[in-house]
Design a protein around this nucleic acid. Sequence first.
DNA 1: TAAAATACGACCATTTTTATCCGATTTTAT
DNA 2: ATAAAATCGGATAAAAATGGTCGTATTTTA
Lengths: 134, 134
Amino acid sequence: MLRLSKRVEYGLIALRHFASIEDHSVCTAKEISQRYNVPHELLAKVLQKLAQARIIQSYQGVRGGYVLLHNPKNIKISDVINAIELEKPMLAECFAQGPESCYIFDECTIRRPLGKIQRNINNFFHTMTIAEII
Amino acid sequence: MLRLSKRVEYGLIALRHFASIEDHSVCTAKEISQRYNVPHELLAKVLQKLAQARIIQSYQGVRGGYVLLHNPKNIKISDVINAIELEKPMLAECFAQGPESCYIFDECTIRRPLGKIQRNINNFFHTMTIAEII
DNA sequence: TAAAATACGACCATTTTTATCCGATTTTAT
DNA sequence: ATAAAATCGGATAAAAATGGTCGTATTTTA
């Protein structure tokens, strides 16, 4: 319960890696997967998502790889999560998918208090950046 | 990702129910399951857990059921979660199960920052009570 | 032209979560 | 006594989410 996905974990590890190396040098999925002992294929998918979200830039072909596109200070944790996950990270299903998704929506009495906790978590993800995890 | 379990949701709904009725009257799992349109058997198991944790008191037999044992102000959300879930609600597996559970523990670079978020969440669960969800 | 890399979809395996079922026990009321 | 209504708890099934792998195509460099 309340777990972050491995995908997000791997994404954060990768972004921290990009942010911690000096010049904006290119890193490959293979390098990162070996360095941090993370499944190559899965990491590759995560990096592709980050590239689609314009958080990193991809270069195909031999000597290709990825580079960071922004200052780590400007990459929020929420940006990373949103890039990687299809669904927003929400405590309750209805927060992510709306009233129709919940068959006890009308009888539910805990939505408001959970919403309070949710806002707190959202705020954290929205405030914290990659610069703070280096 | 980051979801609360249905078990915890049902537990909170039930406790809010107990806390919102006036006198400390007895409620059965059946009553609550019908009132809030929640699966009876699953709710029953959750209530059993809450009873084992001495958050509510169970009475067996005809006209049995459960009553709240404490002032809602003194029942923390964290108490409820700990009673219902075997494992602590943690963002990362290693936070709940220790270093041995994680095969990239030594290479992991995001433990500290995630710990910061975790403490924030923990603090919320530890501070908020059932009184605040009525 | 071969090699090394990303791109992307499909798929499978595992784990977690949710839900149900069943038999046992307890207690009350008839 | 007996039946009914409730909790207790173990077992299990069903469903969903997650993690991981595979294969093929494309791109780019040497």
